[in-house]
Design a protein around this nucleic acid. Sequence first.
DNA 1: TGCAAACCATAAC
DNA 2: GTTATGGTTTGCA
Length: 198
Amino acid sequence: MIEVFSQNINGTWFAVACTQQEIVGTSFGETEPVALQKLLDNLPINAPFQVLFTPSNLAKTAFTLLSDMFEGKNVKPKINLSFTHLPAYTQRVLLATMQIPAGYVASYGSVAKAIGGGPRAVGNVMANNCFAPLVPCHRVVKSDFTLGGYGGGLKVKIELLKKESHGFCEPKKISVEGGVLEVYPVEHVLSRLPKFVA
DNA sequence: TGCAAACCATAAC
DNA sequence: GTTATGGTTTGCA
């Protein structure tokens, strides 16, 4: 049985779905219904679940991680995420994306080159990311350093990237399963933002 | 710049 | 099986 929890942290609603051992999905949104809806949409079909009000220990851990991520802290999620019900390629994309450090971004194309497949396939995985923002899909942008899209809204993507800015200058190569992932300082993206400032 | 075509894994039929 | 769908990329006018 999958247990579902929701919680408001500093004005943002987060939702977590988990079993006793592992996280099955996470999401966030401006309102509780939005966060829950996005979470449930990505749950395995026909999976039985129940909505509970008192977070389990695992859920508490997840909420802490989620809010830390959301504040731009460089946390490496040491937590059991359940990928096994996902297609193999999807798992590879998610794993590679988790290797992108805070303060850096990678392009859809560079992720694709590192693990195989094509840029659009990577975009597809991002669009259906069931672990936002634990899997930092906001750190994946277009090859020209413009934003691309974001499930949680572009405004949020910008905010997250700004919070993660650490003033790095040099690109970096990160070895991931099957290849090398090139990442770039998030500044490259932020410097092209003026047209988006609200 | 802007547009069209190629790209690639999934999900939906 | 087949088709439709993207959070893309690249080439070319």
